[in-house]
């Protein structure tokens, strides 16, 4: 069963040094997951100031600056893991360094057939 772990954290919650360490620790976690065949993908996102939203209103496309919803903490990155169940997903979520400062939302992935390449075969950094 695949899960998406969405990392929400205040963008100023970490110092530059803490962020560097966070990337290092997260990368190590990714490698550990990969060794156990549980890793699908992971990546940080650029700050929310770079976000653009697209909507359709009254049949017209509307492009706006900014994220879909203004929240106290912002989506800063994600992991996608392949694990036995929701409990294991939550256990991994709690090992994500950013869980100490922010919140990780665990969402089950709805597996549908016929996608171009199976998620398993796709690397996060290629």
């Amino acid at each position: 069963m695949k899960y998406m772990l969405l990392i929400y954290m205040g963008e100023n919650a970490m110092s530059d040094g803490e962020r560097e360490q966070c990337y290092k620790d997260s990368t190590a976690l990714c490698h550990e997951l990969a060794e156990n065949g549980k890793f699908i993908a992971a990546s940080p996102l650029q700050p929310v100031a770079t976000a653009t939203s697209v909507r359709v209103r009254e049949g017209k496309r509307l492009i706006t600056d900014g994220p879909f919803a203004e929240t106290r903490e912002q989506l800063g990155g994600y992991f996608i893991v392949d694990v036995a169940d929701a409990d294991e997903a939550a256990a991994i979520a709690s090992r994500i360094p950013a869980a100490k400062k922010g919140t990780v939302e665990v969402r089950a992935i709805l597996e549908i057939p016929n996608l171009p390449r199976k998620l398993e075969t796709v690397g996060a950094s290629s």
Partner: peptide, 10 residues
């Protein structure tokens, strides 16, 4: 500055 930063990073 913000607009130019977005042009560049996005």
């Amino acid at each position: 500055v913000r607009a130019k930063a977005k042009i560049k990073s996005a």
